Amino acid sequence: MIAVVIPCYRVTRHILGVIAAIGPEVARIYVVDDACPEGSGRLVQESCTDPRVHILWHAENQGVGGAVKTGYRQAAEEGMDIVVKIDGDGQMDPKLIAQFVKPILNGDADYTKGNRFYNLEKIRNMPGVRLFGNAMLSMVAKFSTGYWNIFDVTNGYTAIHVKLINHLPLQKISNRYFFETDMLFRLNIIRACVMDIPMNAVYADEKSNLKIKDIFLEFTAKHIKNSVKRIFYNYFLRDMTAASLELLLGILFFGFGVCYGLTQWAHTLSTGTPAPSGTVMLAALPTIMGLQMLLAFVTFDVSNVPSRAIQQNL
């Protein structure tokens, strides 16, 4: 059975239309009122007669991630098979739900997510600030999540097999705007197969609560933290490969070469004495070797993206 989770916060203008557009393939619709000051949950309760709708309430605002996780837990408890998450602001077309769940039903993926960058003509409709921000975040997230084959990581249109929900540490996943990226990081740790689904976004009169200046430093710190944890888990704790040695030796050689070279360059500037060729080589050779090893590690990491669904093994 397929369930839909709709986190609700200031979406009273769109939420009823979103629910009405959800097709008969969906068995449950979990509307999560995240302490909405506009009373989104109350509006649905009073105006919607769809028997599939179940309203879940938060006494305090927990953020989009917290709302989605509440829906995930409820879907798991009620024995759903796949949970689709869409926003209540009308940006995501519910008619695409079948496309999102198909790869999971076929056993080709464990988790699917939208990608608004497939159609280059359609992305012209995306506001310039969002376009640039999403592109930059996607590039950084490729390394921190380990999913080099996907893009548009902040896209919140997703679908997941319930079996994975039971194996994810939901309490450790971010409750706020970092939720989608943090989910991908956790999915990579359990080696889940993630697939992009092409989609077009709709930008009407909705207002985003996300301010780039407010989350830039927070996102940067979390990306660095997740990158270190992912590499440690996958290449040193769970398994060790040639890539593990390439990373260690690459950091060692590159670090030594750069530090030694800068030291000698500073010495040359202060004394006016040119550095001997042997000194130059002693700085250049480790730097080049270290860089080559680091590039070899990245190449291995790119080829190591999970490509087989694990849902049948859970």
Results as ranks from 00 to 15, higher is better:
Val302Trp: 06
Trp265Asp: 13
Ser144Pro: 00
Arg238Thr: 13
Ile190Leu: 15
Gly41Tyr: 11
Asn134Gln: 06
Phe117Cys: 03
Gln62Glu: 10
Trp148Ser: 05
Leu248Asn: 06
Tyr118Pro: 00
Val18Tyr: 00
Gly63Arg: 02
Gln62Ile: 06
Tyr118Arg: 10
Leu43Trp: 01
Met1Ile: 09
Asn106Ala: 15
Ala109Val: 04
Leu187Met: 06
Cys259Tyr: 13
Leu247Ser: 13
Arg10Lys: 15
Thr263Ala: 13
Phe219Val: 08
Asp50Gly: 13
Met126Ser: 06
Met183Thr: 14
Leu56Gly: 09
Met183Gly: 02
Tyr9Thr: 08
Arg176Ser: 10
Pro7Gly: 04
Met80Lys: 06
Ile215Leu: 03
Ser227Thr: 15
Cys193Ser: 13
Tyr260Gln: 09
Arg116Pro: 00
Gln62Asn: 08
Leu164Asn: 00
Asn155Ile: 10
Asn106Arg: 15
Gln311Met: 07
Glu206Arg: 10
Asn304Lys: 12
Arg124Tyr: 12
Tyr30Met: 12
Ser307Ala: 15
Met80Trp: 03
Gly79Phe: 02
Ala284His: 06
Ile123Ser: 10
Glu180Val: 00
Glu78Met: 12
Ile55Phe: 05
Ser174Asp: 15
Val153Trp: 01
Phe253Gly: 07
Lys95His: 12
Ala221Asn: 12
Asn149Thr: 14
His161Gln: 01
Glu218Met: 12
Val5Glu: 01
Ala67Cys: 11
Glu46Phe: 01
Ala109Thr: 02
Ala266Ile: 14
Ala159Ile: 04
Thr49Pro: 00
Gln264Ser: 09
Asp81Ser: 13
Asp93Arg: 08
Phe143Glu: 06
Lys95Ala: 15
Met126Arg: 11
Glu60Gly: 04
Asp93Gln: 07
Lys222Pro: 00
Glu121Ser: 12
Leu120Ile: 14
Asp205Gln: 14
Thr241Ser: 14
Leu295Lys: 08
Ala283Phe: 10
Leu184Arg: 01
Tyr157Leu: 09
Lys225Ser: 13
Lys142Val: 00
Val31Arg: 02
Ile150Pro: 01
Leu131Trp: 07
Met126Cys: 12
Phe297Arg: 04
Ile55Gln: 04
Asn166Pro: 03
Gly41Asp: 07
Val228Asn: 07
Leu314Trp: 08
Gly255Lys: 09
Phe151Ala: 10
Ala266Gly: 08
Leu249Phe: 15
Ser270Ala: 15
Ala135Pro: 04
Ile55Asn: 04
Ile86Thr: 05
Asp182Glu: 05
Asp152Leu: 03
Met136Arg: 13
Leu187Asn: 04
Lys163Leu: 02
Leu252Thr: 13
Val258Asp: 10
Trp57Phe: 12
Ala275Ile: 14
Leu285Asn: 05
Ile15Gly: 07
Ile197Gln: 08
Glu218Ile: 15
Ile22Asn: 01
Asp87Glu: 14
Gln45Asn: 10
Gly17Asp: 07
Ser208His: 11
Val5Gln: 02
Arg238Glu: 12
Lys142Gln: 09
Arg10Trp: 11
